[in-house]
Nucleic acid binder design. Structure first.
Length: 1049
RNA sequence: GGGCCAAUAGCUCAGCCGGUUAGAGCGCAGUCCUGAUAAGACUGAGGUCCCUGGUUCGAGUCCAGGUUGGCCCA
């Protein structure tokens, strides 16, 4: 006996019950060790999830992929490491801890104590790692949760030290000075990666036009434009395009003294002038080179000794501004690059908090965000301000705290990419990228990237093991904790026992190998992508257990969402593996796009369209979520929401459940168990052989799909299989299960359906681990494993695949559909038998196929006879008409004769030719098939539907005999409904009472046996029903009948 | 400015190596079926497969150019 299965199921409750059961029976533990020592290995290395917040439904998408690929490989017997990773160092964490503590700047951290602050950071990581672990378990993600790695671990940090040491030995590490985007609040540089990922906003800034008076041409000024007036303090040059045309103009009455003035600007931007002007002269940009001008803030000490002049630059544009670009090398990126070319001084105005440093007069000590007014005032007083507007433009902001970025001249540490760039590209090309265009994206990034900036002036993160001597300037990189201890000259005792984080690590000092001075570590921490990029080494024992590392490196698979990762995680993995081993760190990379809401918009908590993971899990059920995730095209954005989840459940999970429920119900009635001997597949009914053939094809295609990391195709095939199983196999087989006696055919049907369900749940188990386990536990165990997830992946039996039978059955489905359409058109319901349905097929071969499956079609369409038509004209009136739209242009005034020829032709003959898509010869004209329009109207007595070369014709005349039979079926239908309404068990035997029109007697007289058998009526009694009967009145195809049913003892 | 990706029904998407007459789900309108069905089936309306050229016996599919959108780089 199988456990009875309700037809309605609360999937969410079922999932929770199974989580408890798995836990109780230790199934996950058994799964994790299932393949220990197996000869086959599959190495998956997890990309660490940032343990800074609860995980979202977008993480659940990625984790579903990770889980399903690993589950698939587990079922196939591959030994695996099931190690999840948490990412927990860096600015993300710091910012959240700062928020929790109500901090607003770096000095707050110093005041609070770096040691306590770092401990809080670690604690936050541990807290959210726990949250994410619980969420992942709810998702059905089976990992070795006690063995998750952390990027903040000592091993991870020290392995990065080793990497940096290797880089240093190869001469890649250098300290560079550069102008970079800087967040004044976080007090740290922001890499370009971070800006392009999420860091732009529309911001309104002043749009300032300023006069730079020419030294050698009194009364004449360059007109420049800027949206960052604070940078004017550090101006050293003006750039002009060598090839653009500039103009010298006289402007009426705009001078500082109210008189006329002479200005220079690019010809294409004359609209920037605020009054009438007269062009005095046109000048090529190159002619402006070397002109000296008075800077806007020459009075400041910081400007002392600077000689301002015009330089040339190809990047100057005419699309905004004045074509004369103010250049401040200490406060702008391109400006800095240009200054190196022209050997200009760089004046750096800001400290790390964005405040003006000494030498800037009244501005010194003010924040960059406070100086707009004093600067405007100063310019106005000096007669330099020409015009002040506002402009709203895209401007970079800090991706964590939304503070506007500034550009600042800083000293940072870099890994040079000059040599590595090519090697990384070669490694990249050896990897399988899914989708394929991933490789192109990675290579594109590698071509364009700058040197890797690895330092950050923060507190909680990798302690960069760089020791730079303050005395002689020499620097070294320490490669391990052992080396540090050996080199330590003080502070080791204070550090020992702590993680290699600030502030403890900085107790340790070493002696400079050049000059012997005591050297401290630089204050900087590392770029967090160092942390994540090292994991194919750090988590696989690279430093201490090379054999283990060789066993699991490189990873067979990694998988992450692609936005951002090509220049982040993938890049750092590739770089580190190339530098250390010059080989690929992973063999395949399965990447996927972005999760959006159902309308295609980004999910944001503030927008209110975000779905929390728990909410999704509890409302949709995670199986529905997982099926939806798995079935999507990973290269396209996924539109995710409750509507789609409902859809998925209704289309897949409920039909599957219904088939399962159907099976258990009837198996229990008949006492069928998997042990019941069943005939071999070859001796079973055609339907059985067909669905078994489909099943084995499914195994084959699903396996092939997953082998190429294509879950979407596997999902689609499974969807189709369930559709066929439910809507053809079970539908057509119902009678076989329903009949009273248990014969060989019935056992074969049970065995077939059981085989389909138990195999299907194995195939689906990696995708939807809950519902498959539920079904497996009830009907699939049978001496197999303790859990479906400990089962072997099915292997297709090619000998059971019968493609001819597949074709025949699909033809039967198609013709049935067409026949139903023809009945529908004639208004004859399927319960009413018809004499005949005739089909026109496309090929002769199909006639043979139809012969094979004719009984299925006949039964499905409730027809007494099925036949094949050679000629549609026997059942339909054909008319042929000229297609004037085509014939008109082609024949011009001869079209009348063509029409005449068509009208004389024999329609059925023309129809035959046109159907074959051949030219029609009509007298002297040869017509193309589409030049003739053929239409068919039903002949008396037939209802015809034609579609794609097939036709179905249903006889519409219902004889008295057929009418009687139709009534019998209607009567059965009504009695069945009454049984259900009365709450009888499916197997209850009953007595049926009836009274009514005399026509009812006729029906019963003719079909008593049939009615009794179908309704399980032992007796069919003509009388009013007794009191206790379930009774009601009906119209049976125009006849009145009163019916009553009673269960027999 | 450069690179990558996409464009198919009202919406969301399939469409494998180029092969007859382009499909599904949802939505809408209507009908039917059901003792597995909080289901299902059928019908109808709805398509310039973004445009223009090319290759080919044959192009939604391949090539070139363009348009629009997205992502990335500068």
């Amino acid at each position: 006996m199988f456990r009875p299965v309700p037809s309605k199921i609360d999937f969410v409750q079922m999932e929770k019950d199974l989580l408890a059961w798995w836990d109780e029976c230790g199934i996950v533990e058994k799964y994790l060790i299932r393949n220990d020592g197996s000869g086959k290995r599959f190495s998956f290395v997890d990309g660490p999830i940032t343990a800074n917040n609860p995980m979202g439904v977008h993480h659940a998408w990625g984790r579903t992929y990770k889980d399903l690929f690993q589950r698939y490989k587990t079922m196939q017997g591959f030994e695996q490491r099931y190690q999840n990773g948490f990412d927990g160092q860096g600015l993300w964490i710091e910012v959240n801890v700062e928020k929790d503590l109500g901090m607003t700047s770096k000095t707050d951290i110093e005041d609070y104590g770096v040691d306590k602050f770092v401990e809080l950071c670690k604690e936050r990581v541990r807290r959210f790692a726990d949250v994410q672990t619980k969420q992942s378990i709810r998702l059905g993600y089976w990992m070795d949760w006690d063995d998750s790695y952390h990027t903040m671990s000592d091993e991870n940090n020290y392995t990065i030290w080793h990497f940096l040491k290797v880089c240093h030995e190869k001469g890649y590490i250098y300290e560079g000075r550069d102008v970079m985007p800087w967040c004044p609040r976080c007090g740290t540089g922001i890499s370009h990666h971070e800006i392009v990922t999420e860091g732009y906003k529309d911001i309104t800034h002043p749009s300032v036009y300023v006069r730079f008076p020419l030294v050698d041409r009194p009364g004449e000024s360059l007109l420049i434009w800027t949206t960052t007036p604070w940078t004017l303090t550090s101006n050293v040059a003006v750039a002009a395009h060598p090839d653009l045309t500039y103009v010298k103009v006289k402007v009426k009455g705009t001078g500082p003294d109210g008189g006329d003035e002479t200005l220079y600007l690019v010809k294409g931007r004359l609209e920037a002038l605020k009054a009438d002007y007269e062009v005095i002269e046109e000048i090529k940009g190159s002619a402006l080179e070397g002109l000296r001008y008075h800077g806007p803030f020459d009075e400041l000490p910081a400007q002392e000794g600077v000689e301002h002049r015009v330089i040339l630059w190809d990047e100057v544009s005419e699309s905004d501004g004045t074509g004369l670009v103010h250049s401040a090398p200490g406060a702008g990126e391109e400006d800095y690059a240009l200054s190196k070319e022209y050997d200009l001084p760089a004046i750096a105005p800001l400290d790390e908090f964005g405040k003006f440093v000494d030498g800037f007069g009244e501005l010194t000590g003010l924040s960059v965000f406070e100086v707009a007014r004093p600067i405007h005032r100063s310019l106005r007083e000096k007669g330099r301000l020409y015009r002040l507007d506002q402009i709203t433009h895209r401007y970079p902001v800090c991706w964590r705290c939304d503070t506007e970025l500034v550009f600042r001249l800083v000293d940072e540490w870099f890994i040079s990419m000059d040599e590595l760039r090519h090697d990384i590209a070669e490694v990249t090309k050896k990897i399988t990228w899914i989708p394929e265009f991933g490789m192109g994206r990675e290579l594109d990034w590698l071509r364009n990237m700058d040197d890797w900036m690895i330092s950050k002036k923060r507190y909680y993160g990798l302690a960069l093991p760089i020791y730079k001597c303050a005395d002689c300037g020499h620097f070294e990189v320490i490669g391990s904790e052992v080396e540090l201890e050996e080199r330590a000259v003080e502070g080791w005792d204070k550090f020992e026992g702590h993680s290699p984080h600030r502030p403890w690590i900085d107790e340790v000092k070493i002696a400079c190998e050049e000059c012997g001075a005591t050297v401290s570590r630089i204050k900087d921490v590392g770029n967090p992508w160092l942390d994540a990029g090292i994991v194919t080494f750090s988590t696989l024992g690279y430093r201490n257990d090379k054999d283990y590392w060789r066993k699991w490196f490189p990873a067979d698979l990694i998988s992450e969402s692609f936005p951002g990762q090509f220049r982040n995680w993938f890049y750092s993995l590739l770089t580190m593996s190339t530098a250390l081993e010059n080989t690929e760190p992973f063999l395949a990379n399965f990447t996927y796009a972005t999760l959006l809401d159902e309308k295609g918009e980004e999910m944001h908590k503030s927008k209110g369209n975000a779905i929390e993971f728990e909410e999704g899990a509890d409302k949709m059920g995670v199986d529905a979520m997982r099926w939806m995730y798995s079935g999507t095209n990973p290269a396209s954005n996924l539109l995710f929401g409750f509507g789609r989840a409902d859809d998925t459940r209704r289309r897949m999970l409920i039909p599957l459940w219904n088939v399962y429920s159907f099976f258990t119900t009837y198996a229990n009635i008949d006492g069928y168990t998997p042990d019941t001997p069943a005939p071999p597949v070859g001796e079973r009914a055609e339907l059985d052989r067909w669905i078994i053939s489909e099943l084995n094809e499914l195994i084959r295609t699903a396996t092939a799909s997953l082998d190429r990391y294509d879950p979407q195709t596997a999902v689609r095939e499974m969807d189709e299989f369930v559709e066929r199983l439910s809507n053809w196999y079970v539908r057509r087989s119902r009678r076989r299960f329903w009949k009273s006696e248990v014969d060989t055919d019935k056992v074969a049907a049970f065995a077939t359906l059981h085989e389909c369900l138990t195999t299907l749940v194995k195939l689906m188990a990696p995708f939807v681990p809950f519902v498959t386990e539920e079904i497996y536990q009830n009907i699939g165990r049978n001496g197999g494993s303790e859990s479906v997830h400990l089962e072997d992946w099915p292997i297709a039996d090619e000998s059971l695949i019968d493609t001819r039978l597949d074709d025949a059955t699909r033809l039967a489905m198609r013709l049935s559909s067409l026949g139903r359409a023809a009945r529908s058109k004639a208004g004859i319901k399927v319960r009413q038998p018809v004499a005949k349905v005739a089909f026109k097929l496309r090929t002769d071969a199909e006639s043979d196929l139809l012969e094979q499956v004719a009984p299925q079609v006949r039964d499905e369409l409730n027809a007494k006879e099925i036949s094949v038509l050679d000629d549609v004209s026997t059942v339909a009136n054909l008319e042929i008409k000229p297609n004037f739209q085509l014939l008109g242009p082609k024949y011009g005034r001869d079209v009348g004769q063509v029409v005449g020829a068509i009208s004389k032709a024999e329609p059925s003959e023309v129809f035959r030719i046109v159907s074959a898509n051949q030219q029609v010869e009509l007298g002297e004209y040869t017509l193309e098939p589409d030049e003739i329009v053929v239409s068919a109207t039903d002949k008396e007595g037939f209802s015809v539907i034609a579609e794609q070369g097939y036709s179905a014709a249903v006889t519409t005349e219902i004889s008295a005999e057929l009418e009687l039979e139709g009534r019998a079926r209607e009567l059965v239908h009504q009695i069945q409904n009454m049984r259900r309404d009365a709450g009888f068990d499916i197997a209850d035997r009953i007595t049926t009472y009836y009274t009514g029109d005399s026509g009812i007697d006729e029906v019963i007289a003719a079909h008593e046996g049939y009615i009794r058998q179908e309704t399980l009526s032992d007796d069919l009694i003509k009388s009013a029903p007794p009191e206790e009967a379930h009774a009601s009145s009906h119209r049976i195809n125009g006849l009145d009948a009163a019916l009553g049913v009673v269960v027999n003892e």
